[in-house]
């Protein structure tokens, strides 16, 4: 059994997640980049080499906004079978999570203000372990509703206290 690997979960997240991630990354990075530039312009008597730092910050911000959403879209995947929930996430690192449906305690869906215009929603499935919540980021809102309904139906059928 030692030469098997974990396959990727069956489904990708919504393609609209890419522009959403790009926008939210852009907002966060813009604040940092602008702060760096403003600090460079406003503070008098900066040594010459600090311009290199400022340029590095700006370049990193641009790279983050351009590359991160694409890589993340390739990595993020999810699957709900009759017995388990399986997700994969990350962009520099990787993280796979598996939880048996029989141990699921709550199913939450969340739609942030910025997610609404893109028609996206996230689902979080929690178990009795604080280390075990599974989040599927940026599903199509309709898909999210279906998955929540299905998970709730399955978990309602199990009567255990799931510890």
């Amino acid at each position: 059994m030692s030469d098997v690997v974990l396959r990727e979960p069956a489904h990708r997240v919504s393609p609209r997640a890419v522009p959403y991630w790009r926008l939210s990354a852009a907002i966060g990075d813009a604040i940092v980049a602008i702060a760096a530039v403003v600090a460079y312009v406003v503070v008098p008597g900066m040594p010459g080499w600090t311009i290199v730092l400022v340029l590095l910050v700006v370049a990193a911000a641009v790279a983050h906004v351009v590359l991160m959403p694409r890589i993340r879209y390739r990595v993020h995947r999810w699957e709900v079978t009759d017995t388990a929930v399986h997700t994969r996430s990350g962009w520099i690192g990787r993280e796979s999570r598996i939880a048996p449906i029989s141990r699921v305690q709550t199913v939450d869906s969340r739609q942030g203000a910025l997610m609404r215009p893109f028609g996206l929603a996230s689902i979080t499935v929690t178990t009795a372990s604080a280390a075990g919540p599974i989040t599927v980021d940026c599903l199509d809102a309709d898909t999210a509703r279906e998955v929540v309904a299905r998970l709730t139906a399955i978990t309602a059928a199990t009567e255990d206290d799931a510890t």
Binding site: G93, R94, S129
Partner: peptide, 24 residues
């Protein structure tokens, strides 16, 4: 009650991972 397999960038390069068994 669940598993988390995570790899940082460093770990991915050499094929290692952290395995977390979640429990109550």
């Amino acid at each position: 009650i669940g598993w988390v397999v995570s790899q940082t960038w460093w770990q991915r390069r050499i094929g290692l991972a952290d395995l977390v068994a979640t429990t109550a």
